[in-house]
Structure formats: structure tokens, C-alpha cells
Design a protein around this nucleic acid. Structure first.
Length: 582
DNA sequence: CGAGCCCGCGCG
DNA sequence: AAAGCGCGCGGGCTCG
């Protein structure tokens, strides 16, 4: 059973019931925001799947009214998958000219607890006249159902579309709830590292001292350490033979300027990326509300917009502190990508190396390589396409021990080099290379091709092969992570809501101090980073939450790989501060 | 002056 | 060009 929701960015929302084939079973009705929330409260328990164009635009209206939904179908995200998937390549949807469903997501307004206390529920009177269908959304949904039905593997695609859509729900919920963030702690971390906050455009004390030392050691009173070309010239004049100013290259040098320069780089990065200006821009009422973009990366990984949420440096994670009486459950999947590769390729030997333990240690224990560091660099090389260095030298040993896994990554690379498409476990397919790439390959195979043309074409072919090689692993890992989070979310909703003192809202008189939140007294996801999650939970429930998170990892493995014997162990800790996790 | 590029570095 | 994947973002800098 589906309910199609359209026009939900305005105060008038249209809903229409559809049967399991996507055929309307009633006329559409126009609802006010309040009526829409009431309908969702009433019907969400019935196993309804809400079908809407864009979760990021439709769902916040509900969250602001403390209403959550269990399941949805995000037409825009699902369209992107089906348009591109090799499994639906013959469908009408995949072969239609590009249209509005192919446009990128509109930037969503900041929708979060704290910034929008109450939206306007202007009482637009219910209007009982039947509304004309939003034929576009209905036709699109029907085309998607048809494409899945006629596909080579409807079961996998249905799981993928459900996972992508529940990911969109989670993304909206995490943005709404926000990551607990103590500005006071952040401020003291910055002050300890950089010195007291200085006016805009002025370096804080520690940074200015280092800049002075750098100029002294280089014998150049003018050099600007923030300008790479300027700095490079100064380094070269001082007799340092470097081609770039990258930290890893400078580390190798012996010179008195190196130590202050590396410290300067580290600190200026902290100031520019996560300093006081960042704090004032992104932290509202002790919460960080980044905008998550499900499907924002071609592989299916999420991206974020604003605030650099996926790059929070370890330096400042001490500011992420649970509320009083609450804890964090921080979990990350151990060696996720190699385990995904083992399962994708049904390489039972590699899966066995990871049984219940550190997979890299298991590779060492099997006698494939001598050290854990070697096992790790060799595995990364296999998944990323290394050809030289230590990683390249170790690859043959890995290939002897795990021929099935290595054959799969090689096949994916060869496909990419030919310009072919590869697909993840659940059927998300890689994009085709661009016209420039095709032109380059064609030119190199013509009669008059120069050696330079051929070299460049070969290099670009290998580059695309490394991309497709990694795509199947990174993309399938992203699918595992979506299933993991979906199972966590489902499990958390089975927990009893602890009896808590009346909230300010319930006491009356203080309504405006705490906006309504569906997460005020219940465990909820607050952060996601590719293979890692944070759940914010009343401390008394932390043990239960950890159990749910751990079981969800096993369930995700079964959803993707059935009974193939591969483990997905986690490191899972209960902490008050994110800095205390691992 | 803004748009868009490069550089460099944070995360997985 | 780190030996190899995927990102976002800020500062410097060039160009129009």
C-alpha cells in the first residue's frame, strides 16, 4: 500500500492512495500541514509506504510536528538509480529523454530544531473537491515500479530502493536532531591550540609566532606561509629542493624551518576549517546540523553540504559530548571493504581470514604476509589498483591466497578500461566515461595515432579501470551501511521510551524554550561516516542500543549476501565524548 | 569584483 | 606522482 504525497513544500499537501501496482484507489485529497501530520500518525502503522518526490523537502514538515514515518519511496533518488542501472537498461524509464527527475536536488532550506521553532500552520480550510492528480509524480512512480518488475533482478533492486529511501529518512532525521556539540569545549580546544581568538584577518598568537619563526628561519621577512607558490619560492631560495609544499614532502627534509612550518600548516588548517568562524556558522543551540546528501557520491556513498561534516578532524571531536544523563554509542565496522570484497567474490578463504576477528590479523595468521601493516596495504592496493611500491610487490601473494577476490577486482578494472559499466551487489551501476575519454580512446586506435596519443589513452583507460575496480567495493559497502543503519533505526524504535520528567513543553508556560522534537526522549542516530555511526541515547539504554547496533550489522550482511559465511564485526563503545571512541 | 581553477589537507 | 579509490572546503590566484 502506497500513499502518494505531492506539493508538500507549501502549506497545501495532496495525498492519494495507490494499490500495490501503483494504481490510484481513491481520488486525491488536499490537506493542511496539521491534517497531513494527523494522517501520517494514523496510517503509518499500517505498513504504508509514503511516496514523495524529495524526502529532504517533504519530511521536515512532519519532523517539526514530532511525526516520524517508517517507510518511504524517494522518487528522485530512486529515479537516479534506475536511470543508470544495468539491470534496468532496457526499461522505458532508462531510455526516456532527460527530464525533471534527472535534475540535481534543490538546495534544501535549513530545516532543523533550533532554527525553525514552529512552522506556520495557517488553518487552510479542508477543501473536499477532488484534486487533479499530479500526473507527473504518479506516472514517474508507475514507471519506476514497471522498471523494477521487468528488471533482471527485482528483489535486489527493491532492497536497494528501500535502503536508499530509508537512508533519506535517516539523513533528514539526523539533520533535524543534530549532533550534540559543546561550543564552550570547542572554544577552549581552539584557545589551547591557537591562543585566544583574534579579530577577523588577524592570526591568533600561536599562529603569528610560528609565522615569525618561519620567516626568520627562511631569512625572508616577506614570505606568506599561506601562499603555496610564495612559500615554495622561499623554500627553494633557502636551498630546500622540493617541488611542492605538501606536508608529507616537507617531513622528509632536515632544516630548522620544517618543524615550525609543519606546525603552522596544522594549526592554520584547524583555524580555517573548524575554527571560531565555523563554530558560529554551524553550531546552533549546541547542535551541529549538517545537510546530508544521500546518493551524493556516484558510488552511493553519502555526501554533505556545508560544514564539512564528513571531515571532522580528530582534534576537535572532544566537543562532541552527550547531553547530561545521555551517552553515545559509537560503532564502526571493522575492515568493512575487504569483507565486502570477500562476500562479493564468494572468496571463502578471505572470508575465513576475517571470521570473528581482525581480518588483517587473520591474513597474517594464514601466513600470506608477515605483518598486519603489510596485510592492510596489500588489501588497499588490491581494491584501489596499486601497481608499484610495497603494495604492488605484495599483491601476487594476496592473489595466490585469495584468487577469487583478486579475480573480481581485476575483472572490474578490465571492464572499466574497455569503457564498460560495472554494478554493485544490489544493482547500482557505474557511470559511463565521458565523451573526452571515448574520443581519446578512439583517437589512439586510429592509424595516425602518435605514441603520445597512445600513452595518454592507455593512462586514462587505466585510470577509469581503477575507478570501476573500486566502485564495486565502495558502492557495495555503502549498500551494506544503508542496510545497517536501516536495521539500527528499526531496532531503536522497539525500545521502550523511558519515563522522564515532564519536558518544559509539557509543563506549559515555557513552550518556546524547547521546540518539539520526536527525539527528545528516545535513542536516535546523530552521525554517520561511511562505516561508522553514533547513536545518542539515554544512558540507561546504552547497553540495549549497543546490542541493537551489533545485531543490525549481522542482519545487514544477510540482507546483502544471504547465508554466505562472512562476518561483519564492529568496534562498539559507550562513551560520553566522541573523543573517547577508539 | 565574482567565477572558476589549483593547491593542500581533513575524513573514510 | 605518495602507490592507489571516493569526497568537501578554504585560501590564493588568474582571468574576464
Amino acid at each position: 500500500m502506497y500513499i502518494l504525497v505531492t506539493g508538500s513544500s507549501s502549506e497545501r499537501i495532496r495525498v492519494q492512495e495507490l494499490d500495490s501496482a501503483g494504481v490510484p484507489t481513491s481520488v486525491g485529497r488536499m490537506l493542511t500541514t496539521a491534517q497531513f501530520r494527523a494522517l501520517v500518525r494514523e496510517r503509518d502503522q499500517d505498513g504504508v509506504r509514503w511516496v514523495w518526490e524529495d524526502t529532504a523537502r517533504s519530511y521536515p514538515v512532519l519532523l517539526r510536528g514530532s511525526v516520524r514515518v517508517q517507510r518511504c519511496h524517494d522518487l528522485r533518488l530512486c529515479h537516479a538509480i534506475l536511470r543508470n542501472s544495468a539491470l534496468t537498461a532496457a526499461s522505458a524509464l532508462a531510455n526516456a529523454p532527460a527530464g525533471r527527475w534527472d535534475a540535481p536536488a534543490a538546495a534544501s532550506p535549513v530545516e532543523s530544531r533550533g532554527t525553525t521553532l514552529f512552522d506556520m500552520d495557517l488553518g487552510v480550510a479542508e477543501d473536499n473537491r477532488p484534486e487533479p492528480a499530479d500526473g507527473d509524480a504518479l506516472a514517474e512512480f508507475q514507471a519506476q515500479l514497471q522498471a523494477v518488475r521487468a528488471s533482471a533482478d527485482p528483489g535486489r533492486l527493491r532492497l536497494l530502493l528501500a535502503a536508499e529511501s530509508v537512508g533519506a529518512l535517516i539523513a533528514a532525521e539526523m539533520q533535524f536532531a543534530g549532533l550534540p556539540w559543546r561550543s564552550a569545549i570547542h572554544d577552549s580546544l581552539l584557545t589551547a591550540e591557537l591562543g585566544p581568538r583574534a579579530a577577523a584577518g588577524i592570526r591568533p598568537a600561536r599562529l603569528e609566532e610560528l609565522a615569525v619563526r618561519i620567516r626568520t628561519e627562511l631569512g625572508d621577512r616577506e614570505v606568506n606561509p599561506d601562499s603555496p607558490p610564495d612559500l615554495l619560492r622561499a623554500l627553494n631560495r633557502a636551498g630546500l629542493a622540493v617541488a611542492t609544499t605538501r606536508a608529507w614532502e616537507l617531513e622528509k627534509l632536515e632544516h630548522p624551518v620544517i618543524e615550525p612550518l609543519l606546525r603552522y600548516k596544522k594549526l592554520s588548517r584547524l583555524l580555517a576549517a573548524n575554527g571560531w568562524f565555523w563554530m558560529e556558522s554551524w553550531i546552533i543551540d549546541d547542535r551541529f546540523h549538517p545537510e546530508y546528501l544521500p546518493g551524493g557520491v556516484v558510488t552511493g556513498r553519502w555526501a554533505t553540504r556545508g560544514g564539512g561534516a564528513l571531515q571532522l578532524p580528530k582534534q576537535i571531536r572532544g566537543a562532541v559530548v552527550a547531553d547530561p544523563g545521555w551517552s553515545f554509542v559509537v560503532a564502526d565496522a571493522a575492515q568493512l571493504e575487504p569483507r565486502i570484497l570477500a562476500a562479493l567474490s564468494t572468496d571463502t578463504a578471505m572470508a575465513a581470514a576475517g571470521r570473528g576477528t581482525d581480518l588483517y590479523a587473520g591474513i597474517v595468521a594464514s601466513g600470506v604476509v608477515e605483518t598486519r601493516a603489510h596485510a592492510k596495504v596489500a588489501m588497499l592496493g588490491a581494491m584501489y589498483g596499486a601497481t608499484s611500491g610495497e603494495s604492488g610487490r605484495l599483491l601476487p601473494r594476496l592473489a595466490r591466497a585469495y584468487p577469487r577476490a583478486l579475480a573480481l577486482t581485476e575483472a572490474a578494472a578490465r571492464a572499466g578500461e574497455r569503457g564498460d559499466v560495472v554494478s554493485t551487489r544490489l544493482g547500482r551501476s557505474s557511470p559511463r566515461p565521458g565523451a573526452d575519454w571515448e574520443d581519446g580512446q578512439a583517437r589512439a586506435s586510429e592509424a595516425g595515432a602518435s605514441p603520445a596519443d597512445e600513452r595518454r589513452a592507455r593512462s586514462q583507460a587505466r585510470e577509469w579501470g581503477r575507478f570501476t575496480r573500486n566502485f564495486i567495493v565502495q558502492g557495495s559497502a555503502a549498500e551494506w551501511a544503508l542496510c545497517w543503519m536501516a536495521e539500527i533505526r528499526k531496532g531503536l524504535r522497539t525500545l521502550p521510551v523511558p519515563a522522564t520528567p515532564a519536558t518544559p513543553l509539557a509543563r506549559g508556560g515555557l513552550e518556546l524554550r524547547t521546540p518539539p522534537s520526536p527525539f527528545a526522549d528516545t535513542p536516535h542516530l546523530v552521525f554517520f561516516l561511511h562505516d561508522e555511526v553514533i547513536v545518542h541515547t539515554p544512558a540507561a539504554l546504552a547497553g540495549e542500543v549497543a546490542r541493537i547496533v551489533t545485531e543490525a550489522a549481522s542482519t545487514a550482511g544477510r540482507l546483502l549476501f544471504g547465508d554466505f559465511p562472512v562476518d561483519f564485526p564492529l568496534t562498539c563503545v559507550v562513551v560520553d565524548s566522541y573523543a573517547d571512541a577508539k
